[in-house]
Amino acid sequence: MPQPAHANDFDFAASGRRVFAVEADGLAAVAGRIDGAFSAACRAILASRGRVVCCGMGKSGHVARKIAATLASTGTPAFYVHPGEAAHGDLGMVTDADIVLALSYSGESDEVLLLLPALKRQGNPVIAMTGRPASTLAREADIHLDVSVPSEACPLALAPTSSTTASLAMGDALAVALLEARGFTADDFARSHPAGALGRRLLLHITDVMHAGDDVPKVGPDASVSEALVEMSRKRLGMTAVVDADDRLLGLYTDGDLRRSLDDEHVDLRGTRIEAVMTRAPRTIDADALAVEAAQLMETHKINALLVVDGERRVVGALNIHDLLRARVV
């Protein structure tokens, strides 16, 4: 398509700002109508024994898909069904326990209206989200959410812009209100996002990433520095714990301590006992802590490794920054 003659002189930034202003006005108008109908919709969804079935055609369909995804990830079981496909068999996915959230800004989408008799016959409550309270869908629904906006951001008033933004915001408002009412937590969110970064951060514990048993580098306080180095090299964690006969932590010796020892003319690698050069109060972490807590501890104190101890200060594990990187915690 050829560019118009004035394209080089067009103020794109002003046009973009105007869109934001128009859509902000639309959101403000819809926010002012969050009332008893909104509360009724939330109560109906909470009382439902089934899922929220979201449907809509065209741009409303895209919005309905996003609302379904947001609801499902925040504790409200939901899915999207295409109205056209529903009329040709997919309506079988909707059980009599489900509640339907139908989107149509005009409130007159034929494909959505065609489903109403079957839904009513099955006893499904219908929540409508439209921009026309007098429309067929608004009148036939059990609950109507008015998402009408003063104007579209499209200067031709043709492309759904402000109206779709308002519908998305209304869907978000439903999801968040339901989330808060259910007492949904960050842990709950992580369980529905196990492959995501948040899921890893909230579900992965120290025991999932630490080295344990014979893989933990440990020496006694009478070991020489060179014996500690052999243990560090064998276990490849860049450190070794110094423990008593009951595996209780006495200290820590790291690669950094080795560099300092080499600079100290009084340290004989074969003759100096490790307890003379170890760090006596090292940072540690509990085995039942989250892996992300280890990452935060390392970052805060600028260290690359941690010993894992139990309630009696026995060394039960060890990990370093590379373990957290492999687990994609950091």
Rank of each mutant, 00 (worst) to 15 (best):
F20E: 01
E231S: 09
T136V: 10
L319N: 01
G50K: 08
G16I: 08
V149C: 04
L179A: 08
L324I: 02
A64Q: 10
V267Y: 12
N320A: 12
L297T: 05
L325M: 12
G256V: 01
G107A: 05
A31T: 05
H6Y: 11
D98L: 07
A138E: 06
E231K: 11
R328F: 10
A294K: 13
A13N: 14
D25H: 15
G196H: 09
G50M: 05
R273M: 07
D288I: 07
L145T: 00
V230S: 04
L174I: 02
A86C: 08
T76A: 06
R191P: 09
L115Q: 05
M93K: 12
S261Q: 06
D142E: 09
D244M: 12
P217F: 12
D255N: 12
R18E: 07
V308G: 08
M129L: 10
D25C: 14
R280G: 09
Q122Y: 10
S167D: 02
V309K: 15
R182Q: 14
S109E: 05
D11A: 03
H82P: 08
H211T: 11
V216L: 13
A7L: 09
I67F: 13
R236L: 06
D25Y: 13
A228E: 00
M129Q: 04
M232K: 11
H88E: 03
D247G: 09
T165A: 09
L168F: 02
P282K: 00
A68H: 10
E293K: 12
D222Q: 15
R201V: 00
L145W: 01
H322S: 05
G271N: 08
V63E: 01
A13Q: 14
L324Q: 00
L252V: 03
L258C: 03
E293C: 01
D247H: 14
G36Y: 10
D9G: 09
I206V: 10
A281I: 10
Y253R: 04
A169F: 04
P83M: 03
R259Y: 07
E180T: 05
N320C: 15
L179H: 13
A13E: 12
A141V: 01
D215C: 13
T161R: 07
E312T: 04
R139N: 01
T279M: 11
S60H: 14
K218Q: 15
A195M: 07
D187Q: 07
A141E: 02
D187P: 03
D96V: 06
V277H: 13
D247I: 06
I67V: 15
T207Q: 14
A37N: 15
L290N: 02
P117A: 02
F38E: 03
A197F: 06
